[in-house]
Design a protein around this nucleic acid. Sequence first.
DNA 1: GCTGTAACTTGAACATGTTCAAATTGATTC
DNA 2: GAATCAATTTGAACATGTTCAAGTTACAGC
Lengths: 226, 226
Amino acid sequence: MAIALPKTRRGETSRAAILSAALDLFQERGYEATTMRAIAGRAGVSLGSSYHYFPSKEHLVLEFYRHTHELHAAAIAPLLAREQDLAVRLRGTIRAVVVTCEPFHAVAGSIFSTVANPSSPLNPFGGAAKPLREEVVALYAEVVHGSDARIPPDVAALLPLTLWLYQMAILYFWIFDRSPGRLRTLEVIDETTELIVRLLGLANLPVLRGSRKRILTLIKSVTEQA
Amino acid sequence: MAIALPKTRRGETSRAAILSAALDLFQERGYEATTMRAIAGRAGVSLGSSYHYFPSKEHLVLEFYRHTHELHAAAIAPLLAREQDLAVRLRGTIRAVVVTCEPFHAVAGSIFSTVANPSSPLNPFGGAAKPLREEVVALYAEVVHGSDARIPPDVAALLPLTLWLYQMAILYFWIFDRSPGRLRTLEVIDETTELIVRLLGLANLPVLRGSRKRILTLIKSVTEQA
DNA sequence: GCTGTAACTTGAACATGTTCAAATTGATTC
DNA sequence: GAATCAATTTGAACATGTTCAAGTTACAGC
């Protein structure tokens, strides 16, 4: 069960070959159609060896997820370095998510459901995915704090986590999107990012103060469970 | 693949026995721990017979879902007949969802993930689950329209579908809730239902008009995909 | 060079969802 | 009552994720 980190060069080679074969095959055939035997076969190792480095097929998905996160982070680095406007930063970041994931669109459905399973070790609220989740949340913290938007501290504290949830919602929509060029998802992104930024601007209105407090308490309560 | 509806009394008996055995076992052992062989065994039929009436194990989950929906609808009927206040109706309805589902809490995780899988025939946005989804949406339409709340028509038109989404979100939270008596979920329900009703009251404020239109367009766009 | 040990590798074995061709049943028709 | 035929039932066979005990490798210490 425990993940065995390779301790020799030979082990590193094997682990890397298995991971690389898995990523390729997931992309080529999808998650379910990729068998552990096929992964082992392409990696040039035996079936049992795969289980030495990855406790289950699901754990290979986690690596897949990490892979796309790294692509995404690299893709938006220039934007985050250059741009100050929050709406532009947010829109660019979320657009980049779906652009980065586009090659995996056909695969994404089964992967998402694997990850959404609360009893899976991989579910984003749970233990195994925690390091990766924190990386993504940190990325959204940079999106927010690197902007020139003036956001009340109580809102700013919870915004990155909320944006991470928002990203997951967009991805779920994207999975169902069959429109050419995934245009509908891009439209929804443009709409929602603008809406979010606008609502952030309204958060200081007296009439919304009460609701804002409620919402913040709620988000804190919901997320601290994870 | 096609679902075979029983055409003889004998077939009806078999189908009913399989379904009943499945519901019992899902509750006793959970979804994954229940094997098709165990279902067939308890139902007193052979393994192959189960597949004559239910194309897959997942399809048995759909029946499970339908079962809880019927329990839920029955549970809230008195409330809906008596009460006029929207906040009370909504809170009672959502509370009843988690109360009804409580016996299945341990099982709910894997069931939810099965259902959330976009490539599953069962996913709530897709085809096979459509009739049931429409029943649930209709139930929320009754919650809204049977109240004395005065809601703008454009909002009222989309509210039931939105509340259905809201119910799914609450259920997802509930699945993770390990607090005694599921108190945290009940708290979140109280908070969110009050928030929803309050925001509905604010929807007519001029400053929110623009956002309201945006939000409605968005919800329509998101849901018509299904 | 030898030995011991930890790391690594292997593939057979197992459990379980699913398929399918063949067997059985039971009602309808003559 | 015999023939027919669709509905139903059966269980063996298959694919695949996972486990595990046994085998192999390679390096550290002598």
